[in-house]
Design a protein around this nucleic acid. Structure first.
Lengths: 236, 236, 236, 236
DNA sequence: CATGAATGAGACTTCATTCAT
DNA sequence: AATGAATGAAGTCTCATTCAT
């Protein structure tokens, strides 16, 4: 029976095509910039459109709204870093090496251009209300999955101390990095030596989470390996 | 957009009196609540006034604007936690005990009421945009001063490893706590055992930053050297 | 537990006062004009504000939104006509006379300035969706209550035919009036003689809904009464 | 706002061909659906295009704009019902039977599919604003022509009372039906028994408009006179 | 022909802020 | 000292309509 019902405004999204996909990429790119710089509230669709030199209406042709755009921006960014992390993680090596990789990669990824987005996720990920909230938990979980996994494997094979639950180990690893990244953003300009910092961090963290015996054992093994390697090298 | 003039139309500030000071305290108290709950952008002067049952205009009688109020709110909060921290720190005890106190106190202070504010500081502290800006760095520095101090003393008397600069030790201490607090806020409701968590954290952290014994120290240095050398080699 | 929740925008309605009540009346008056002229969709808050020479924001200070304003406009109008109708209905007289009053009053009320609003109610009263719908059923019922009541009493005392349910009698009464009023609006300008039309309508309707015998009885009584009245009058 | 120019940028109208005529029919068909469901303002060209699986631009290839399309939709619908009515009317039978046919047919036509359109005509037919405007009066007149005709013939041959002008008889017939149809639409779902309702309506209406017999006629005239006299007296 | 794509114009709404009283 | 009242400025979003391909 036909009666005037309030229909949710019909989507008018253009079909996938070379041109429209380029537009979407453009908007996502600039959207990422603006959201990263300004945060969700202070970012405006007007600015995003202006930076691209297009009409604001065009933005809404491709995205249902500001919120949806922002969710896509963050989702895409997560997809990127998740892919990078999973692709590079040296799962065949000792857990210690994997952690090292994780830390170096995390620092690098976030500093390169993700700091604003990181801030975005952190500050908007809350807000149970309606803006953004909740959408990112799955991403967050997927991103930290490799870390949780390697820690678990470390506990299983004795490399990582088993007297602390993962729930406590995780913040030990992620927390310091986030803190450093925040600082880096706050005092933008004063560049930090990512590599060195990551290495130092990794070393200290390992002291905290390694199985006491294991660390000694591993280090002794390292000394032996290096000695031998040197010896081998000397022969040539 | 109204460019900020050199001489802003300074609101008639009421003379200090018992009554007006009470007003100011009220506004600051409720302002703290609202900013903590909603964040800077989503908080409204309307709500602050309504919760107090006063007119919005009154808020502007005592504070030049929303931004100024928020800065005062955060400043006052910092003053409080700085005072609490400095008052309680057992400086005569071993550094290990002081760190323990710091961690427990920090967790407690932030969870009790400050989480929202913590979020506020973190997410608004940046914002190259314009709101709030770098107002909080001095506070942040004052707050972490006791921590930096105790770590330095620890390095001086041999309790804390001296092979890492304070710049790196600090995030090791603060980072995990922040991370845990974020989580606690994100999944509000699921209360965490602050005491237990703080104790666990403290123990692990100590493993990371305590001065190692001899063999370990040497071996760790070796590892660091090799790692660094490898990293350098990798760059070429 | 304080977490950023999405609060429905706080109402900022000024307290009741001579001035604000005048404003509210002004807005309702002009709102009534505009909604009546344009219908809900084509009416704009901009126009309402402009006609009053006030800022659009002021309108929203007193009414939560366009919809709420429109509902108030219609509600107030219903209140007026309901009051007028109930106040004048001569309940002590025969049902025939009451019907006559109802018809004359209805025509007069709607033509004076209600036609636009009548249209508004009719066309927006539908739309189950979200705009306006449903809000008016109670009003509609209250307005038609006196009519239903007098018809029922007529059926009870034998003045009105009892072989048709009220459900069918009601449209017989209201329908023709609505139709005439629509026409009057459509060809605005060509004024109609309300009184004469109402009288004619009333007469025909009575033929349709009177109890066959009753009509004859009543008419004969009328003739007798008039005769006697004339005779009385002639004596003076 | 784009003022309507004297020579509107007339869309390239495709030449008449089998294919393009099918297109036009499709658009009109779906346009009728959408306008009927949503009303003029809430209907969107987007939705019409989407339901047909064609581009929005195509709609504008065949129709100058939303308004023109709507006018065509309503016009076509009128043509249909006018044709149906004229084709079936049993002009050789007594007027009473013809009226019966008219009522039954009207109810059936409007309920089956036309209620939305009826609403559309009624609510958009007015609108001093600008949309749609007075385009439909001619249609309305053509549609009611058969009714007017049969009533006139009834008056001529003594079946219908001659003491009331057609101008008053017409709303007596059309009004109740419209009212019932409105209600039926408002409480969509609760289906009504069209046949029974139409029969009841027809019977009552006939009581109202049939030529009365002698005594009744005289008495009614008396009543009308007295009533009129009273009304006149009341004005002084 | 058909359409993908873009957009101008405008709608409603929110909120920090001012000022006369 | 307090506030009732008003508003400028801005923001998000919708939609009929155009035009190059």
């Amino acid at each position: 029976m036909p009666t005037r019902t309030a229909t949710p405004p019909l989507a008018r999204r253009p079909a996938a095509s070379a041109k429209s996909e380029q537009r979407i990429r453009d908007i996502l790119r600039v959207g990422r910039e603006v959201f990263a710089e300004k945060g969700f509230e202070r970012a405006t669709t007007t600015e995003i459109a202006q930076r691209l030199g297009i009409s604001e209406a065009t933005v809404f042709t491709y995205f249902r709204g500001k919120r949806e755009l922002c969710v896509r921006v963050i989702g895409d960014w997560y997809d990127e870093i998740i892919a990078t992390m999973e692709a590079g993680l040296p799962r065949e090596q000792p857990v210690r090496a994997q952690l090292d990789f994780f830390i170096h990669t995390h620092m690098r990824l976030f500093l390169i251009q993700g700091t604003g987005l990181c801030a975005l996720v952190l500050s908007e990920g809350r807000s149970k209300g309606q803006a953004l909230g909740e959408s990112f938990l799955p991403f967050q979980r997927r991103y930290t999955a490799p870390l949780m996994d390697l820690l678990a494997r470390g506990q299983a094979n004795g490399e990582v101390r088993a007297d602390m639950p993962l729930r406590v180990l995780r913040p030990m690893v992620l927390g310091p990095m986030e803190h450093i990244l925040w600082e880096a953003v706050a005092q933008a300009g004063k560049a930090i030596d990512i590599g060195a910092t990551a290495t130092a961090l990794s070393a200290m963290l390992w002291s905290a989470i390694a199985a006491p015996d294991a660390e000694l054992a591993v280090l002794r093994q390292l000394r032996a390996d290096v000695s031998q390697a040197l010896a081998q090298a000397g022969k040539r």
